Amino acid sequence: MGHEVTGIDLSEGMLEKAKQSADNMGFEIGLFHGDAENLPFEDCSFDLVVNKYLLWTLQKPSCAVYEWGRVLKPEGRVFAIDGNWFDPRPDRHIKRMLSELTERFAKKNQYNLIFKNSYAPIRNSLPLYEKISPENISFLFSETGLVNTEINPLPEVQKFQRNKNSFSQKLLKNNSIFLISGQKKQE
């Protein structure tokens, strides 16, 4: 689409996957190994910062959001896509438990077991691990200086995900994807 694209990730493996994907599609993008909480870019370098499923994995999410604002040009925007994975409402909690039991019983999708084993040792050091929600992220954006914050529940994405799931997944899965956007103030 004519844009200059820069990607950053802490994981060398994810950077390699991004490079392969870009190469397969014939895109030239700049890829950098780095930390979202301490970006290696100059102030006011970008028009847009986009991330997906990242905030809940960070030890210092406020540092990351501050950094995103720092590297944005005035009136630049942040788009953060995430999910309310641990929605505390009783119906969502029950769905998560039933989904885990069903997957264990069917011995399908070892992802949940790998996920739990990987994050168990560090989950207490991740402030948004169980507190990721559109409201909390909107507050975080505002607290770190972003303005014009908007929440979009992405109904089209949720519908797509429901349609591709099996019957039991449709009943039990927690489709809670959302987009939060915020804007850097004009200086």
Rank of each mutant, 00 (worst) to 15 (best):
M1F: 10
M1P: 07
G2L: 02
G2V: 02
H3I: 05
E4D: 14
G7F: 00
I8Q: 06
D9G: 06
S11N: 08
G13Y: 01
K17Q: 12
K17A: 12
Q20K: 15
D23L: 10
M25S: 13
E28D: 15
G30I: 09
L31E: 04
H33P: 08
D35V: 00
A36N: 05
A36L: 01
N38W: 03
N38M: 06
P40D: 04
C44W: 06
S45P: 00
F46C: 02
F46H: 06
D47M: 05
D47A: 05
L48H: 02
L48N: 03
V49L: 01
N51L: 07
Y53N: 14
Y53V: 10
L54R: 07
T57A: 06
T57I: 03
L58W: 05
K60C: 09
C63A: 15
V65S: 04
E67P: 07
L72E: 03
K73Q: 05
P74G: 06
E75F: 05
G76F: 00
G76E: 01
G76W: 07
R77T: 07
V78A: 01
A80P: 01
I81P: 00
I81H: 08
D82E: 08
G83D: 06
G83R: 10
N84E: 12
N84D: 15
F86K: 09
D87Q: 04
D87R: 03
D87I: 06
R89M: 05
R89A: 07
D91Y: 10
D91A: 10
D91M: 07
H93R: 15
H93M: 15
I94P: 06
K95V: 00
L98K: 01
L101H: 15
T102K: 14
T102E: 15
E103K: 08
R104D: 13
A106M: 13
K108D: 13
K108S: 13
Y111Q: 12
N112T: 09
I114Y: 14
I114V: 14
F115N: 13
K116V: 09
N117L: 13
N117K: 15
S118G: 10
S118I: 09
R123H: 11
P127L: 07
L128C: 03
E130L: 05
I132N: 11
I132M: 15
P134D: 03
P134S: 06
N136T: 07
I137P: 01
S138P: 01
F139Q: 14
E143L: 12
T144R: 06
L146Q: 00
V147A: 12
T149V: 15
I151L: 10
P153C: 06
P155L: 08
E156M: 09
V157H: 02
F160Q: 10
Q161H: 08
R162A: 08
R162D: 08
Q169V: 00
K170L: 04
L171D: 10
L172S: 02
N175V: 05
I177A: 13
K184F: 03
K185G: 13
